[in-house]
């Protein structure tokens, strides 16, 4: 599905040139469009800018000028916030890594078997999995919590990891199956001539062939799990195990009147994904495009 189409963001592809259509006023129109887009962009990003401004204020500065940049900048908020949230960040890194490894492993295996082999019940299994795309999270949240409680996974990372994998694998299998079907048969034939086992086919042919789509899947799961708030704040009540968003949420409760450190915490919490995005923007955008078909 994704491989078959042109990259979404061609930098200078053979796009139609609508400027031609604009006729004589095109120059003025273009400047108008740029200004409008810049105004929208500034308004859109202002809350983030504001968070940075507020994170650099002492309480006095906040009460006098809450919504603008004030000098001197107060970086003490950052060390104060970091001292509290650094271990939430580590917890999030751990939970996201375990969930990601699990999701990629189980969905690649399932995608491989469903996409490359015929076996009794294959279509039933496939549509059972894909059908879950039509089940919204609101139906399962409460009963899932009851289940997690029975499994004694409350206040444990497993209460996040298993639901994350079970939720994340669905769309991943949907994409991976199609990519598996697209791998040229010759590669597998050649491997079989050399006497490869099914595991060797999986590790040495299938897995390397689907690496690009695994990147897309990974980046999008990471963004979703990193920013997840409500489910982890239900499952984790002990600060020791809290991931970043519920951690920031409890930090918010403790700092209602202490805006500087609070905003510093928000800024710190947003940075890891921004760094990730700098290196993987293409993967992220491709995933956003394909994700639009997921309900």
């Amino acid at each position: 599905m994704i491989a078959a189409r042109e990259p979404v963001l061609t930098k200078a592809g053979p796009l139609p040139t609508p400027a031609k259509v604009l006729g004589k006023h095109q120059r003025g129109m273009r400047w108008g469009l740029h200004s409008l887009l810049w105004i929208l962009g500034i308004l859109e990003f202002y809350p983030m800018v504001l968070a940075v401004f507020m994170s650099l204020k002492t309480n006095t500065q906040y009460y006098l000028h809450p919504f603008s940049l004030t000098f001197p900048l107060d970086f003490a908020n950052y060390s104060q916030a970091f001292a509290v949230i650094w271990h939430f960040i580590l917890n999030s890194v751990a939970v996201v890594s375990i969930s990601l490894a699990g999701t990629l492993l189980v969905s690649t295996m399932a995608g491989f078997a469903i996409g490359r082999y015929r076996f009794p019940g294959r279509d039933v299994v496939y549509y059972m999995l894909i059908g879950l795309m039509m089940v919204p999270g609101v139906l399962t949240m409460v009963p899932l919590f009851v289940l997690i409680s029975h499994f004694h996974m409350v206040d444990s990372w497993w209460g996040l990891v298993f639901p994350y994998i079970a939720g994340g694998e669905i769309f991943s299998i949907f994409l991976l199956r199609q990519f598996m079907m697209g791998i040229p048969q010759e590669l597998f034939d050649a491997a079989q001539v050399d006497g490869a086992t099914i595991w060797q086919e999986f590790w040495h042919i299938a897995l390397p062939s689907v690496m690009p789509i695994l990147g897309v899947i990974a980046v999008n799961h990471v963004v979703g799990w990193w920013n997840d708030l409500i489910w982890p704040s239900i499952v984790l009540t002990n600060q020791k195990w809290m991931t970043l968003m519920p951690g920031l949420y409890s930090f918010t409760g403790q700092n209602q009147t202490n805006v500087g450190p609070l905003m510093a915490g928000y800024v710190i919490g947003s940075i890891p994904l921004v760094i990730l995005f700098m290196f993987t923007s293409r993967l992220f955008i491709e995933g956003m495009n394909s994700g639009a078909f997921k309900l």
Binding site: W226, N227, M245, L276, F284
Partner: peptide, 8 residues
């Protein structure tokens, strides 16, 4: 902007 946590 979709990267910034909705909570923030």
């Amino acid at each position: 902007k979709m990267l910034v946590p909705g909570m923030v």
